[in-house]
């Protein structure tokens, strides 16, 4: 049997809200070490990669590897039936064709149970090579969300340039052009508010704002986001999930024709 109980159930709610517009169906790979998911969007331009380690659950039981194919729209609707402070348990019997979701109120006086039919998903898995990135930018996730939203006023794509001074987002379209420049923080009260640029070499790449906007829906998961860039390599956008794992998005860069 597979059973994973997540005391902070709202992490799962935030996760599924963050990916449901990008990916329709996904295989949850359940292993003794934890829960993972990898899925591309329908146009194969971006990739979602989720890891939730077993030690983030309490308890976590996985006797053998299981693949749970789940429609994320359905899962999102079911998760809306839970409260933010509910404890969420995912369970799957060894020979079952469904995943069971259990929502438990903090005082354990309300228990709801939903049985979701599993779906067969033909999922092409990609191998992501270890990459030494030219630049790694860390910033508040709310700031990332705001910049992506602001740049969308101007056009469909954004050019992100990392230098030793900081990071610059710029866009231009029919109505005009604009940019937002963030300097590296010198002194901040909280590390979560800091903007840092870890630079091997200056890099400038262009990406579709539509996808960055979808990625930024993960902002409620984590106060900070990390953007990793290398020339001619997909952008990595990473949100850490408490102490238990991460939600990563990869986006292929736009290439000048």
């Amino acid at each position: 049997m597979f059973e994973a109980r997540l005391p902070q159930g709202q992490i799962l709610k935030k996760l599924i809200e963050a990916v449901r517009e990008l990916v329709t169906d996904a295989n949850f790979e359940c292993k003794p070490s934890g829960l993972s998911l990898q899925a591309m969007d329908s146009s194969h331009v971006s990739l979602v990669s989720l890891l939730m380690r077993a030690d983030g659950f309490d308890p976590y039981q996985c006797d053998r590897n299981r693949t749970l194919g789940i429609n994320l729209r359905t899962l999102a609707s079911v998760l809306k039936c839970s409260s933010n402070d509910d404890i969420i348990t995912i369970r799957a019997e060894d020979d079952g064709d469904s995943a069971i979701l259990i929502f438990e109120s903090p005082s354990s006086d309300r228990l709801s149970e939903f049985d979701l039919k599993l779906v067969d998903i033909d999922n092409e898995q990609l191998v992501i090579p270890d990459t030494q990135y030219d630049a790694v930018v860390r910033m508040p996730s709310a700031e990332f969300q705001r910049i992506v939203r602001d740049m969308q006023i101007l056009g469909d794509s954004v050019t992100i340039a990392c230098s030793k001074d900081g990071v610059k987002f710029s866009a231009n379209g029919e109505i005009g052009s604009g940019s937002v420049r963030l300097k590296q923080s010198s002194a901040v009260d909280s590390e979560d508010d800091a903007v840092t640029v870890d630079l091997q070499q200056a890099v400038s790449l262009t990406f579709a704002l539509r996808y960055l906007s979808l990625f930024s829906k993960a902002a409620p998961l984590s106060p900070t986001v990390t953007l990793s860039f290398s020339k001619d390599v997909p952008l990595l956008v990473e949100f850490r999930i408490a102490d238990m794992g991460h939600l990563r998005f990869y986006l292929a860069p736009k290439i000048d024709e």
């Binding site: 194969h44 331009v45 191998v127 992501i128 290439i255 000048d256």
Partner: peptide, 14 residues
């Protein structure tokens, strides 16, 4: 004009 490329160009299939 720029073109979005697919991830498979960068990442190998399993």
């Amino acid at each position: 004009c720029s073109r979005q490329t697919v991830l498979k160009k960068y990442f190998g299939s399993k």
